[in-house]
Design a protein around this nucleic acid. Structure first.
Lengths: 194, 194
DNA sequence: CGTTACATACCGACCAGACGGTTTGGAGTC
DNA sequence: GACTCCAAACCGTCTGGTCGGTATGTAACG
């Protein structure tokens, strides 16, 4: 149990510092100091500074994938499922705002192998998302005059941008915001004639 | 004339390296080496590494603002102006992809004063953009059931995301893509009943 | 035209300190 | 006494930035 606490505390501190100052600009010294442990302790649980960063990615990727799987497994008509997926990922992104900041800003700081791993896992997610849109197109619900890749980028851009502008002090309630963003996306996605 | 070349060459090299490796991960040594000049020459024209970064921001901010001013000055009905503005900023962002990468990724590496300056200039841009949307709302063209701040974020998220997924080798023609993204945005912006 | 006076442009060796990471050693537990 | 867990001292490398010095240009003066 103590084991967990040290490693967790280090990760927590690393996340906060990476989000605030960026990965390359944060020293291992700062991290262990903020976590209240020593370098020896940290290097006992992690093999490198890079390892710390990847642990953050690992957590995010697993979480997102799990939630996507749960929602699609529950089933329902295409637009309802897509709406649920979109709203959920917005809410989740708000709940994990620092993770998002680090996630999108520091990907290029990972070792090439780990970058590839992150890319692979993200593509898995995108592909499953693309399937939903393709299904909607077959059902003549969604437009097909714009490439699916553009439609997907159009949605994920909102997710990506959230950490840059959303403030917990702001007026927006997170569930409400999720509904609004999702509605904007679905509106642009639907056929004009449908 | 020689003066210009050295400073320009340094900026060009810095931009490429910052985009590729990130600001904090790029050394002054690498920059001057890539530019084919010495550190002494560089520090003759720039006062610090930070100065280099800010010069990149300065160029981008000036360019965007100038283009926005030109388009709004030309006039026209609200949706046409907004469409022109949106398409232009997409195209410009594609033309300046490395600048965009650095712009969005390394803002937090600037000194606090310069961060504030960038923020101020960006707000200027946003405010002018917001005016267009407000005008469209008054004319009952655009929806008003979603906060303007959310609508703006919804559009700029696409701009922000471009450097992360757009590839010059890809199938998308830039003007076409600009039209598509703009159309998606406008569709979600218009009143449902209108 | 020769000479002095000064500015601008640039070189590259150099520095102090911070960096990520390693090693050593000891305290606690089984 | 073997093992886990961690503290602290330590190491070689690389960093942004500095500085003494030089090369080139140009303007003024006699």
């Amino acid at each position: 149990m103590k084991t967990k606490n040290v490693a967790d505390e280090v990760l927590r501190a690393a996340l906060a510092l990476f989000a605030e100052q960026g990965y390359a600009n944060t020293s291992v010294q700062q991290i262990v100091q903020a976590a209240g442990v020593t370098k020896g302790a940290m290097y006992h649980y992690f093999t490198s500074k890079d390892d710390l960063l990847f642990a953050i990615y690992e957590r995010m990727l697993s979480l997102q994938k799990r939630r996507l799987d749960e929602i699609t497994a529950a089933g329902g008509d295409t637009e309802a499922v897509l709406r649920a997926v979109c709203e959920d990922v917005v809410v989740t992104s708000i709940d994990f705002l620092p993770e998002g900041t680090v996630f999108f800003r520091s990907q290029h700081m990972l070792t090439p192998e780990r970058q590839a791993e992150v890319k692979r896992r993200r593509r898995e997610y995108h592909d499953k998302f693309a399937e939903l849109i393709a299904r909607g197109q077959e059902e003549k619900l969604f437009r097909d005059d714009v490439p699916v890749s553009v439609l997907i980028a159009h949605f994920f851009s909102d997710i990506h941008y959230l950490p840059h502008w959303y403030s917990h002090e702001g007026p927006e309630n997170e569930a409400e915001l999720a509904a609004q963003i999702t509605e904007l996306f679905l509106r642009s996605l639907r056929r004009a004639d449908g």
